[in-house]
């Protein structure tokens, strides 16, 4: 091979050697040196347990609405409801909210962590930190509450703590029912009201 006497040819000759070597090095980093590809985490699967979903029938964001005999509109929504094996028309639900609009214009909002709906017996049982807020200014917290579906009857058998417009009320039990047309909130089982006079 003739020796090259000028710079240009010598440069090109060297480049013909260096450039392919550089290309070879680049290619090898792509395949030889690169991290191994783990095939199983290529696709991010969701964590929802598919078997559980298939095995257990459930409703997400179910809504129950009805009107009671005395004309009060009751609507119940929940996060998840699962029909019970017990009987037809029975379901247990979590994170329930219920709204009762009575014809006298008062709206009662109830929230509970879980509940049991039994349409056969026409009863909704709410348990676990039940909060009742009536637009008449009463905010009541109790442990458990049963609401009749066919008539306006909210009953809380357990102890009740209510903050009323006029003060704080502690009672042994509570019931919201309709008495000949007007809706009455009855606290019984020992009632204590603390009223701060504002003069």
């Amino acid at each position: 091979m003739a020796t090259h006497d000028n710079i240009h040819s010598r440069l090109v000759a060297w480049l013909k050697v260096i450039l392919p070597l550089a290309a070879l090095a680049l290619l090898s980093t792509l395949f030889l040196v690169s991290r191994g590809i783990a095939p199983e985490d290529a696709l991010p699967y969701s964590e929802v347990d598919v078997e559980e979903l298939a095995r257990e029938p459930r409703l997400t964001a179910p809504r129950y609405a009805g009107v009671t005999l005395d004309g009060a509109a009751l609507s119940v929504t929940a996060e998840v409801a699962r029909p019970d094996v017990g009987g037809a028309g029975q379901a247990s639900a979590t994170a329930l909210t219920a709204r009762l609009e009575t014809p006298d214009g008062v709206t009662t909002d109830i929230a509970a962590s879980d509940g049991q709906l039994d349409t056969a017996a026409g009863l909704l049982t709410l348990t676990g930190d039940v909060r009742i807020a009536a637009s008449s200014g009463y905010a009541i917290t109790t442990g458990a509450l049963t609401a009749a579906l066919d008539q306006t009857l909210l009953t809380s058998p357990g102890a009740v703590v209510a903050t009323a417009p006029m003060g704080r009320i502690d009672a042994g039990a509570m019931q919201l029912t309709s008495q000949d047309g007007d809706y009455v909130l009855v606290f019984n089982g020992g009632v204590k009201l603390v009223y701060e006079p504002r003069n």
């Binding site: 606290f187 019984n188 020992g190 204590k192 009201l193």
Partner: peptide, 24 residues
């Protein structure tokens, strides 16, 4: 002092939601 808190205890209290009347 009539500004002191008034405490009412009874067996039962009945409140008429619409009219707002309360009977111990």
């Amino acid at each position: 002092d009539t500004g002191a808190p008034v405490e009412v205890t009874a067996d039962s209290l009945q409140v008429d939601q619409a009219a707002g009347s309360a009977v111990f």
